[in-house]
Amino acid sequence: MADYDAQPGREEPVEPSTAQREADDLDLLAGLRGVAELVADARTVPELLGDVAHFAAIAIPNVDGASTALLHAPFEVRAVTATADFVEVIDRVQYDELREGPCLTSMMSGRVAVSGSLGCDSRWPHFGGRVARMDVHSALSLPLIVGGEVIGAINTYAKARDAFGEHAVALGLQFAGSAAVSVYHAQLLSSARARTEQLQRALGNRAVIDQAIGIIRSRSGASAEQAFERLAQTSQRDNVKLVTLAERMVDEAVRRARARHRS
């Protein structure tokens, strides 16, 4: 039996037939295959999360809409994608307005959160009523966990009551496990790319600063240290970034050299 945070006082939904289970297993397999191929396609993190939400709606039975969210310290939640407009509204209500709901509970506890009648769920008295008035009554939130750490969540919703029973939870857990690894690897890849771009910019900035130092030295006979100090002092005095000042100096030197060449 799957371990999850069920709605207090609510009976477990009737489990699906054997035929329905087999059909659901095929959908889960399709979703898992889709997720397994995501990182290899070098998608950005938001693009990948959009695909995760899409495949979650396929892999988990009875889903009418799904979304993904990322968790940032200190417990800052950022909704990233949704497969339906009504889910985007639910996410805004949960994260930005009320700060309560199944996704937040799931990420705080690291456990699956399930509700079969949001309008009378005592865990989220404000959120549940708002969402029920949107004719959405069931929720299943699955934490994305890597190495024991929650990095985000998958949220699924259904308009029917008691849409997500133990079978849906079991399938959702299988999907979320694979999805978490894909999301984590995509984040690592994105971080590595950002760091590489940062280093490339730093190297480019250093090169133009060195050129400006060379120009100052050729004009004044100053040492490298003295030339850099002059450049830094001018940057502070004029309230201009060091690299911007260096670029201007190099551009001016190039213009003068071209003018002399033409004459």
Rank of each mutant, 00 (worst) to 15 (best):
A6I: 03
A224Q: 12
V240M: 14
V45H: 01
N205G: 08
W124Q: 02
A19Q: 14
F86V: 09
M134N: 07
A158I: 03
V14I: 11
I58Y: 05
S263R: 15
R33Y: 01
R260E: 12
G31A: 04
L38Q: 08
A222F: 13
A66Q: 13
Q187W: 00
Q20F: 00
Q20V: 02
D3P: 01
M134F: 04
R92H: 08
M107G: 09
T234P: 00
S220D: 08
D121T: 00
G148L: 15
T234G: 05
S263Y: 12
D51H: 08
A202E: 15
S220K: 08
Y157K: 12
E47W: 00
R21M: 03
H126Y: 09
V87W: 13
R206H: 13
P46S: 08
C120L: 11
E149W: 12
L32W: 01
V93Y: 08
L188P: 00
G148K: 13
W124V: 01
L48R: 02
D51N: 01
Y95M: 03
A227M: 12
I145G: 12
A153I: 15
E12P: 02
R43P: 00
D3C: 04
L142A: 08
L242F: 00
S122K: 01
C120Y: 02
V169D: 05
R78G: 00
A23M: 13
V169S: 04
E100H: 06
G101I: 15
N155M: 15
A180V: 03
R201E: 14
R217A: 14
I213H: 08
A202M: 13
D238F: 01
A202Q: 15
A59Q: 12
Q187M: 10
N62I: 01
Y157W: 14
A194N: 10
Q94D: 08
P143N: 05
G119C: 03
V45Y: 01
Q211H: 12
I154N: 12
V63E: 04
I216K: 05
L98E: 14
V208G: 15
L71K: 09
